[in-house]
């Protein structure tokens, strides 16, 4: 085999082509990463299962919380004030009082319910028989007229104190016998919603961090397992980024794959739970429908976890570079 000498360099003869291997640097790193994952199938599968199962609950929370917020917000009727009028007030006086109150700036709307309407409503209510018996004994309509008042601000609970102040004003109004502020249940509901949201985010954060720590440790162990390879690459002129690239890809791949699996698990669980949860919500007159992860949701989750996986991998192998260097010095 002949050789040529040009400028002190060895010129190797050209040879026939060889079957294709994707040999760009990044493609090579990705190929090596995939090969490592496939070479250790069981370990890879277990790691992915641990991560994806940990991520399933956060993924479910991510999908459910917006729907839960929508349902609780939309189904919430505005906190109303019911003013029961003196029984001596006639319907005309009741309507006049309603019109006068409706002109107030802190009131959006006022509905007058006459004594007759109230009685009629009761006669057709769920306990109609008992009501009719009682009314027959009394002989006359004992019900007062009532005003259903919708304070300004609708369901915005930030104005809760103003609603209470308005209720106080109504109590002092001539012709009003009693006032009932319908706001406490709404405050309780909002507190429960906030609690669910906070707990959700807490679980979300803890489980995400736990998954990322598993990923970080996996990448770190993989990095330590390949310290010799990193040393050889270093000695052959490989830069730090070249040596780190397969491990960063490993982090990104593990993150993305575990996100994909977590979406699959979430889809299965939410499909199973969807029917009973919807039935429960319907019993409370809420139109809750269990949201299943769509393609856009899956893409978002996978991308975010791939990025988080890369960042976590960077942190995981931050200290192994020194060990590579030490290995070089001792090789």
């Amino acid at each position: 085999m002949s050789t040529e000498q040009t400028s002190g360099r060895l010129l190797l003869p050209r040879a026939a082509s060889r079957h294709g291997i994707w040999f760009t640097r990044r493609g090579y790193a990705l190929y090596q990463t995939c090969a490592r994952l496939l070479r250790r199938r069981i370990a890879t599968l277990l790691t992915l299962l641990v991560m994806s199962l940990s991520l399933t609950l956060p993924v479910m929370l991510y999908l459910i919380l917006p729907e839960l917020t929508r349902v609780t917000t939309s189904s919430t009727r505005a906190p109303g004030i019911v003013a029961y009028l003196d029984t001596a007030l006639t319907d005309l006086q009741g309507v006049e009082l309603a019109e006068r109150l409706a002109r107030r700036a802190d009131i959006d709307a006022v509905d007058y319910i006459s004594k007759a309407d109230a009685l009629d409503s009761m006669r057709h209510g769920p306990d109609a028989d008992h009501v009719n018996q009682t009314l027959n004994i009394l002989g006359e309509n004992p019900l007062p007229g009532a005003l259903l008042i919708e304070p300004a601000g609708g369901s915005d609970l930030s104005g809760g104190e103003e609603h209470k102040r308005l209720a106080g004003v109504l109590r002092e109004t001539r012709g009003v016998h009693a006032v009932e502020l319908d706001i406490e249940w709404l405050e309780r509901l909002t507190a429960i919603r906030q609690l669910l949201k906070s707990a959700g985010w807490l679980f979300f954060s803890v489980l995400i961090v736990a998954s990322l720590m598993v990923l970080s440790n996996t990448v770190r162990l993989e990095s330590l397992r390949h310290t010799r390879e990193s040393s050889v690459v270093h000695m052959l002129g490989g830069s730090r980024s070249f040596r780190r690239r397969p491990f960063l890809y490993l982090g990104a791949l593990l993150g993305a794959l575990s996100g994909l699996l977590a979406c699959l698990f979430a889809w299965i669980l939410m499909s199973v739970l969807g029917i009973p949860v919807t039935a429960l919500a319907n019993s409370y007159a809420a139109d809750f429908l269990m949201p299943l992860p769509g393609w856009l949701d899956v893409a978002k989750i996978v991308m975010v976890l791939a990025v988080l996986g890369t960042v976590t991998a960077i942190l995981g192998i931050a200290t192994t570079t020194d060990q590579t260097r030490a290995n070089v010095l001792n090789s």
Partner: peptide, 16 residues
Amino acid sequence: IISRRRKREIIDRVTA
């Protein structure tokens, strides 16, 4: 690969 050679060149040189 470390020195960013092209695929064809890599195949040729390694074979040689």
